[in-house]
Structures are given as structure tokens and as C-alpha cells.
Simulated scan of single mutants.
Amino acid sequence: MPHTSGEHSTRTVLVTGATGNVGPYAVRQLLEAGANVRALVLKDDPNLHRLPDGVELHYGDLADPDSVEAALPGVDGVFWMWPFFALSTATAPAVLERIAAHAGRVAVVSSVGVHLGIEPVDNNCHAYLEKLLEQTELEWTFLRTTGFMANALGFAPQIRTSGTVQFPYGDAVRTSVHESDLAAVGVRALTEDGHAGQKYLVTGPEALSQREQVQIIGDVLGRTLVWEDIHHDAARKAMVDTGWPPSYADGALDYFADLCVTPEPGSTVVADTTGRPARSFREWAVEHADAFR
């Protein structure tokens, strides 16, 4: 039977995508909250160094649902992230079936696109995972995030080499969220009561254009950086050449074009659930300044 331990008892939580942009923050914060933490990782994962001491490693692959099984006995909750770029959602129903046989709660990283109604279920992406969860008896929480602040790391090679960022739609206004803040909302959902059935729009505290983000990075570095808009088609080719699925590249670029007209929505979910303000993009840039030097 799934575990349904109360708010003040020790929970055991499994984190998938544990070594990515969000996972290490989730693992660390769960440990700080007193949880027993398991991380689902690949055997050849080059980023295991991102995980803190105290986490229990379980080797498995979401592409192979049977390999996930060993990490689940005794688990109360799952911080569920799906690697959409690297893996189709074909195995998601089987993975979720195994999760539901053990866990009571799931916090899933979803997307602002679902919040806005522009991501269809048949795209087999975030909306699809949400639909799967809604069909279970799990206590689920949707973390519908806007862009990660870490997306700006995609500009790092150009900033390091030339100081000019060539990318389309510099005037696209985003409410990007610090990965630690996104993790914090998910951790609350898994360790506190009152979050079941919530469809949270998780954003940062400010609306900034992509051009303004680059200016802030320049301020932190003490350099003058230049934004240079490039044509949609050239950007699409570059994105696909670096591994973006064509449909994802098209969706992202169309979305950026829309954000030049209508800014991305914002929320106070981070402050409401954690009791402290969401971190600013400048704070994020200071933390990651070395990546741009």
C-alpha cells in the first residue's frame, strides 16, 4: 500500500532527474527538511558530483520502468522530472504505475504552457504527464514553471568568447524562476500538507526581457555585453543542430515571439509557499558568474 505519513513524520522521497538543473537543489532541501532522500541516476551519469552527501543512490532509467522499481519500496513521495529532450514519454504510464503502487504523493515539474493552455495533451509533454497523474489516486501537485534562469547558461559560450549574444527575440519578456525556488515549492508539496491537487504557476519575482537578462549578466561581470537579434530560421537551425527536437525548437521560438507582445505571466507562489521572496535574476547571475567568464 502507498505510504501516507503525516506532515511531522520522517518521509522518504525519490528524486528523478536528480543531477540536472533542479534535482540537486531538491535533494539538498529535502535532506535539510529531515527526509530520507533517494536519487534515481544513470550508471554513467557524469554529474553525480552535484549531489550532496547523505543521498541514497539508485541506478535506473525512466526508459526502463522495471529498473525504477528497486528505488520505490518504502517511498512516500516522488519529485518527478521527465527528460523530455532525451526521452519520449512512451514509458511514462508504466513508470507512473510503479510509482503509484508505492508512493502517496508526487510533485511533477510541468510548464507554463499548460497553464496558458497552449500545450496540448497530444504533444506528449508536460500536459500529458499531468493527465496521467490526474487519472491516479495519488496526491499530486503540478509545478507549472516558466523558464529556468539556468536557460541563460545557453548564452555563456558567446559571452565568454565575444561578448555578443546572437539569438532571436531579445524583447521576449520572461518571468524566469531560480531552480532552487522551484525545488523549494516541490519540497513543500512533498513534506507538508495542503498542496495536494494544486496547479501552481511557479515563477520568478520579476519580468525581464532576454536582452535585459544579458545586461544584468554583464553588470555582474563588469563587462558591456551586446544583444544581437538573429532571424527565426537561423536560430531554429542552430537549435536543431545542437540537439533540440524540431517540434520543441518551433514551439520555443513561436513562444518567444509571442512574449515580445505579451509578457510571460508571474505569480507569488514561491513567496506564498516558502514564506520568503523569490530569488532575483541578479542573484542567480552572481551565483553562476564563473560560467560566463
Rank of each mutant, 00 (worst) to 15 (best):
V173G: 07
R211S: 15
L138V: 13
D44Q: 07
L133H: 06
V27C: 04
T161V: 06
Y169C: 07
S9R: 12
E7C: 02
E97I: 00
P246A: 15
E206L: 07
R276H: 04
Y169H: 13
L72M: 07
W140H: 14
P2L: 07
L31A: 08
P205I: 09
D219A: 15
T262C: 11
Y59K: 05
S176I: 06
P205W: 10
T146N: 06
G218M: 11
S247K: 15
S5P: 03
T91V: 01
L42M: 13
V108I: 08
A152E: 09
S88D: 14
R223Q: 10
G251D: 09
R174M: 05
A92S: 13
G113Y: 07
A90M: 02
V106F: 13
H195G: 01
P2G: 11
E7W: 07
T141F: 03
G23L: 03
I230N: 08
I217M: 01
L72R: 09
A39M: 03
S280G: 10
V177S: 02
T175H: 09
T16F: 00
G147Q: 11
A271G: 12
Y248V: 15
D258L: 02
V202E: 00
F256E: 11
H178I: 10
T12S: 10
G266D: 06
L208G: 14
R188P: 02
H195T: 05
Y169E: 13
L40R: 11
D219W: 02
E283P: 04
G204K: 04
A238W: 03
G194I: 15
G170R: 08
F142P: 08
T19F: 06
D254M: 11
S247I: 14
D229G: 11
V15N: 04
E69A: 08
T268S: 14
V41R: 13
T16P: 09
H49T: 05
G77A: 11
L96P: 07
L48T: 12
V173K: 09
D241T: 11
M239G: 13
E69Q: 12
A39Q: 05
M81L: 10
G266K: 12
W284M: 09
W140G: 11
M81N: 10
G186S: 06
